[in-house]
Amino acid sequence: MIEALLNYNFLQNAFFSAILASIACGIIGTIIIEKQLVMMSGGIAHTAFGGIGLGYYLGIEPLIGALGFAVLSALGIRRLQHKTHITPEVVLGMFWALGMALGILFIAFTPGYPPDITSYLFGDILTVSRLDLIITIIMNLIIVGTIAVFFNAFKTYLFDEEFAQVIGLPTALLENIIYVLVALTVVVLIRVVGIMLIIALLTAPPSIARQYTYSLHHTMILSIALGIIFCLGGLWVSYVMGIPSGAAIIVIAVATYFIISVIKNPARASHI
């Protein structure tokens, strides 16, 4: 495999995108666990499918469409949850299904032979293109940069939103930023594990990591390391056995999570 990695461009792309995806995933995954935005992230991911469809329909890069849909739906969901009396879960559920429905409609409207959408739904890290990689790098720079530069503000906000407000932190802005960063992370992960499987890769590494450390940045770093292990492991299994990479990554991640939770802390294994 090492030799293949040196020789084949597609494997190099896969390798680097696995590492980049794990970085975004470790940082944002930790935040969504602490802020209980797991389902929210699932919703944004599925809504992004509308953007994939729109991309095909307009003949632009589907990931760019996904980026637009993910960011707008993240901000839209947040706004509706705050500014209306609709139950937040209902808002989320509606966006979730609407995004998928729009995606399918756009693809149906697209003239010609229907494109293969399974690589967006379930990921295919072996088909990551140079453009995908560039998008991933930009998203990562934004995510890592934002969190690193305002780390103490985010930390205070994630711990106690009310207190953050009392000391004058711009809590609404911080929340919006987190939602947008979740959207960017979703875009990074679509090629790696696919829309349907994103939630597991976002949550498994930090859920394991937080059983080993009581510090936020250690949780993030450990999550990144675990993400890299899961993604490269999945990539290897998928390359060697010729099975779908997204599914391989998720099975490894989730299995590891359950095994570690049961071994490490039987009493805590029942709740995340």
Partner: peptide
């Protein structure tokens, strides 16, 4: 109203 599971020490 704070997150008691947050990975934070008392000092932090």
């Amino acid at each position: 109203n704070l997150n008691r599971d947050f990975p934070f020490s008392v000092t932090e």
